[in-house]
Design a protein around this nucleic acid. Structure first.
Lengths: 135, 135
DNA sequence: TCCCAGATGCAACAATGTTGCAGGAGTGAT
DNA sequence: ATCACTCCTGCAACATTGTTGCATCTGGGA
């Protein structure tokens, strides 16, 4: 789906930077940090605007968000057709190259918590060395 | 087990602050951030020393470390008898009070990653609202 | 007692993320 | 077309977490 279509369907103004950011996320298809996103934007792009745009896309449910092993958020837009999205799958993070991938073929297990507690979400990161960095 | 005994068994000098930090972690038994630990230490304790002490305890395998949903590390010392420790279980984080608990009765599932990749560890946080905050 | 490794304290720094505010752009109503 | 209003953007400033370098202190062993 096109970035503009997605933005319009959520009643969000379709500005150049929003379009650009969403396009990057859709194209890459893997969870990207603010900094990774920034690298694909024009140099003069404002840091705060990027943060705010990513937060907005997240709040509107257009992208999902994963915390990586360095403690930074990564944002990921899948084509909305994929089942279990956003967020109901594990992620693999390579500790060498830093790349993160969605393991969309996995499904997070049921976890038993204390009586009376309510689970809002689950978050799983598998970390190690990816196949390219192993070579 | 006593903090001193643990430190000695790992050939680490047993200094007052190390003893104090390890004692706090053992007593609480749940993953604590640097800040939570600091709150139980004398006011004049140095921030950097606390960070270095926590890192040391982690490097030596005395405590394990979990990234919470705010992107900060939490450190946790279980009595070394508990199976699956350190780190092979899920954690529950309450988004209201911030408290985190080890779900030591859980076991993280096997996750299939790309061919050639090597898994070094798994990390799972279940978040929501704990039973006390639900009342 | 002396020496040295290791522990601590302080200053400085980097990165991430957030907030407030002023100015600009776009939208809708008149 | 104009005006008013909302919302988007850019800038400055700040908080927090975490790290590094360096000087100093301490404790243990030769």
């Amino acid at each position: 789906m096109q970035p503009e279509t997605i933005l319009e369907s959520k009643s969000i103004r379709c500005t150049p930077i929003r379009q650009a950011i969403l396009e990057i996320l859709l194209k890459k298809g893997c969870p990207m940090s603010y900094k990774e996103v920034e690298a694909f934007l024009p140099e003069e792009s404002d840091r705060v605007t990027i943060y705010r745009t990513l937060s907005l896309l997240f709040r509107k449910g257009i992208v999902h968000r994963v915390m990586d092993m360095k403690g930074t958020w990564r944002f990921c837009a899948h084509d909305p057709g994929i089942s279990g999205c956003p967020g109901d799958h594990a992620h693999f993070e390579c500790l060498i190259c830093g790349r993160m991938d969605c393991l969309t073929n996995t499904c997070l297990p049921y976890i038993d918590v204390e009586d009376g507690a309510v689970v809002k979400g689950k978050h799983m990161v598998v970390y190690g060395v990816c196949s390219l960095c192993m070579k």
